[in-house]
């Protein structure tokens, strides 16, 4: 089998597994599994988005939770205005339609990412880490300040956004909806990575000045990556808000940014499916270790340190090595 065939087989197996999650959950008598899988998919979208700038582009953004949170708040705020039938700023009507709120979330996080990226990308290295953190903190406190939308108490979304006539309250239905979005997202994502743009991004990470010497302005490409990445995280945030029917400033907290980075590194930075594996590993670890012991952080902390110190390439790297051995 060639390498490519192996990948295709893997993707098919992965897809079949995901499709079977609700059936599996029913068979195992563990309905909570559906919710778990939904969360994994949503965080995979967020982590993959971060991976585009962090893994492929080499830009260490320590503020990606901001886009996740803003995406969530777009859904929450639009629902809030829909429920009380008061237009936002007196002109924008609220909405509870998924096909309205999701694009809105993506659009707004995209604009936000363009603004933050345009400024932040004037710096690099440590300064970039710190300035993305600064912007995320500002947004975090901004939502705390918005008492109309719950302030630090958060905003309850009484009903999930509607999509056609589907019963979104049913967790299985919602899972398939999220799966649909995740598949679409990863398909687009894979195309972006393999495009000329994706290759250039990798080249910029490896040697920015050489790319500049060829007459290509790295800044524009980095900014484009940052914007796409912000939009992806915004999509994830909008889905997450729908899943938990609740948004709060916690979604923008810097520790959330840390968690997203953790998923990327754990899964394998700069790989297509790494973030999915990372999200799956971290969320399952969290769920099952919590059931097993309250002190799960005591285990997760050192595991993280060990992974950073000794396991380069994350889970995706590990799988890659295994596959190589198979051959």
């Amino acid at each position: 089998m060639t390498r490519q065939n192996v990948s295709i087989v893997l993707i098919v197996v992965l897809g079949a597994l995901l499709l079977a999650v609700p059936a599996l959950a029913a068979a195992l008598g563990n309905p909570a599994l559906v919710g778990l899988a939904t969360r994994v998919l949503i965080y995979a979208i967020a982590a993959a988005s971060l991976n585009l700038v962090l893994g492929y582009g080499g830009m260490v953004s320590f503020g990606h939770a901001a886009f996740l949170g803003v995406g969530g708040y777009v859904v929450g705020i639009l629902f809030h205005h829909f429920r009380f039938s008061e237009p936002l700023f007196g002109v924008i009507a609220g909405s509870d339609q998924l096909l309205v709120v999701l694009p809105a979330a993506v659009l707004i996080t995209g604009i936000l990412a363009a603004g933050i990226g345009a400024l932040a990308l004037r710096t690099s290295g440590v300064q970039f880490i710190m300035i993305t953190l600064a912007f995320a903190q500002m947004l975090y406190f901004f939502f705390i300040a918005l008492k109309t939308y719950g302030g630090d108490d958060g905003l309850v979304i009484r009903r999930r956004s509607a999509l056609f006539d589907l019963d979104m309250r049913d967790d299985r239905t919602f899972f398939y909806v999220v799966l649909g979005f995740a598949v679409t997202f990863f398909a687009i994502y894979a195309t972006v990575i393999r495009s000329r743009f994706g290759l250039l991004l990798g080249a910029i990470r490896q040697n920015e000045s050489r790319v500049a010497a060829v007459g290509i302005a790295p800044y524009r490409y980095k900014l484009a990556a940052f914007v796409i990445s912000g939009m992806g995280a915004g999509l994830a945030g909008a889905l997450l808000a729908n899943y938990q029917r609740f948004v709060s400033p916690d979604m923008l907290h810097w520790t959330k940014s840390g968690e997203l980075m953790m998923m990327v590194i754990l899964g394998g930075a700069g790989t297509l499916f790494g973030p999915l594996f990372g999200a799956a590993a971290l969320i399952s670890l969290e769920t099952y270790l919590t059931q097993w012991t309250e002190r799960w952080m005591l285990i997760l902390g050192p595991v993280l340190i060990l992974i950073v110190l000794f396991m380069r390439g994350g889970i995706a790297g590990l799988i890659d090595q295994l596959l190589r051995r198979l051959k």
Partner: peptide, 8 residues
């Protein structure tokens, strides 16, 4: 004391 956690 976290509304989100209570809700979950």
């Amino acid at each position: 004391l976290r509304p989100g956690q209570g809700k979950t």
